[in-house]
Amino acid sequence: MLVLLLVAVFSQSLAQHWTDTGNIKWRKCGTSHDWVHVTKFDIEPKPVLLPGTISVTLEGDISHRLGHQVTMDIIVEKQLLGTWVRVPCTGTHYNVGTCHYTDPCNYLRTFERDGQCPPQLQNNGIQCTCPFDPKQLRLTRAGFHIGAVTHGFEGFLRDNNEYQVTIKLNDKHNADVERMCIQARVHINVR
């Protein structure tokens, strides 16, 4: 029994460990029962310059078909005087900040309405709309251009600072059980 308790405590401490890539820090904050597992994640450059182009590396897998049965929370926090302060959700066409999506599949339909999934995703076999079937995920230094900071959000990014982003998927058919959690810390500078 003691051995099981030690294994449980040790595995929890590993789940909380931050991986420092030299560009960002990230960690898995979910469980071994998550439906999405990330094993490698990085964003370049350090700091991220906005507007500008970022390079994203991602490896992992989806182990369960994802569709309308999940909700998604994106929590964006800015470090201010040693404390993490949540950035509110804002936007008209695209939401930015700390936002809750009761149906992220509906939000992803934006790609259909705009007519195109980013080629960086398509070229790596990653689709932009639901459902997402179980599969391996792999992006290697895929470049994405981020345009000007949207109106209403520039105030939060005005000061060059460190940000923490947490993404959670929850199973809405199973008492909102968390099915994925990943956190990343990144430095952002606005030009």
Rank of each mutant, 00 (worst) to 15 (best):
I43C: 00
E44M: 15
P45D: 07
P45I: 02
P45Q: 00
P45M: 12
P45G: 01
K46A: 09
V48M: 13
L49E: 06
L50G: 01
P51R: 08
G52P: 05
T53L: 05
T53Q: 08
I54Q: 03
S55D: 08
S55P: 02
V56H: 01
E59A: 12
E59R: 11
D61Q: 14
D61S: 15
I62M: 02
S63Q: 02
S63L: 07
H64S: 10
H64F: 04
G67C: 12
G67M: 00
G67S: 06
G67E: 07
G67K: 01
H68W: 00
H68K: 07
Q69N: 02
Q69R: 13
Q69K: 04
V70E: 06
V70I: 15
V70K: 02
T71S: 11
D73Q: 05
I75A: 08
V76A: 01
V76C: 04
V76D: 07
E77R: 07
K78A: 09
Q79E: 12
Q79G: 05
L80P: 00
L80T: 11
G82I: 10
G82L: 09
G82E: 05
G82M: 04
T83F: 10
W84I: 03
V85H: 10
R86T: 15
V87P: 02
V87N: 13
P88A: 03
P88K: 09
T90F: 14
T92P: 00
H93T: 12
Y94H: 12
Y94V: 05
N95Q: 14
N95L: 10
N95R: 08
V96D: 02
V96T: 15
G97V: 06
T98L: 04
H100Y: 15
T102N: 13
D103W: 02
P104W: 09
P104G: 08
C105T: 05
N106D: 15
N106G: 14
Y107A: 11
L108W: 13
F111W: 14
F111M: 05
F111H: 10
F111E: 06
E112V: 12
E112S: 12
R113Q: 10
D114Q: 11
D114A: 12
G115F: 09
G115I: 07
C117V: 08
